[in-house]
């Protein structure tokens, strides 16, 4: 047992220039820390691709097997809401990108503003989704509902007898598969948006409090990647769900 060295052994290994206060102990430099975060986020998104990938596989299989049912069922979605939501989400991607831009510039006020704008657009998207979902409930084309029927249930117009021709049960089953996929795909997508909006609010709060700076804003960038990913999923979902067979 020779010389006892004091137990505080932080300083020596880390070169000169002093450590950035946000640099965690086990990294050697801010560059290494940011690189690790960025790379980690990309790998996380990779798992997200495969998560949605499972559903896309199921979609492809059943679209191939039951194209007619998919075409008919897709026609029951309102293309205007779908298009509107696509524009909303693309816009939210723009505001997010601009948020990152202002984070890089160190402009905290504008950063906060764009983050909040992104939350707002996310809210609009979910609001529209709510309108669409509830329309499906009233039309009795929610697959888990016991009163599921195809073609969609229409409120009888006064004076006209209720004469709704029902499709054959096998075809209705295939339509159910379409709507099951519609609800899980859009449902998981919406879940991602809700989680994203929660994080956005926290980031906006932190940005308002002045946590971020020109040197330290990697969380904003990392979150931006996530938000854009959610946008990309929707870019594929829109034609796959709303535009199966729209031509006359």
């Amino acid at each position: 047992m020779s010389n006892k060295v004091k137990s505080d052994e932080h300083s020596s290994a880390h070169g000169h220039g002093g450590r950035h206060p946000r640099l965690v102990h086990h990294f050697d430099s801010m560059e290494q820390q940011n690189e690790a975060g960025n790379f980690g986020m990309w790998w996380f998104l990779l798992t997200e691709i495969m998560f949605f990938g499972g559903m896309f596989t199921a979609y492809t299989v059943y679209r191939h097997m039951y194209f007619d049912a998919f075409a008919a069922a897709s026609g029951a979605l309102d293309i205007r809401w779908g298009a509107f939501n696509t524009v909303v989400l693309i816009t939210s991607s723009l505001t997010m990108a601009l948020g990152v831009y202002h984070a890089q510039m160190g402009n905290n006020k504008k950063l906060t503003m764009f983050l909040l704008l992104t939350v707002l657009l996310g809210g609009v998207f979910l609001g529209v989704k709510y309108i669409e979902y509830s329309a499906k409930f009233t039309e009795h084309i929610f697959p888990a509902a016991s009163n599921f029927q195809w073609p969609p249930y229409e409120k009888p117009v006064a004076g006209h007898a209720e004469t709704q021709q029902l499709a054959d049960p096998v075809f209705t089953g295939h339509v159910k598969i379409y709507f099951f996929l519609y609800f899980v795909l859009t449902g998981f997508h919406a879940t991602h948006m809700i989680i994203g909006m929660g994080i956005l609010l926290v980031l906006a709060w932190q940005s308002w409090k002045g946590k971020f700076s020109k040197e330290y804003h990697s969380y904003i960038e990392l979150f931006g990647l996530y938000w854009h990913f959610v946008d990309i999923v929707w870019i594929f979902l829109f034609p796959l769900l709303y535009l199966v067979d729209r031509h006359l």
Binding site: F51, G53, M55
Partner: peptide, 21 residues
């Protein structure tokens, strides 16, 4: 692993909702 996650999710939804792919 994400594919397992979505597969058991779809299975769970199917079990709860009594309808599924």
């Amino acid at each position: 692993t994400p594919v397992l996650a979505i597969t058991v999710s779809l299975l769970a939804i199917e079990r709860v909702a009594h309808v599924g792919i």
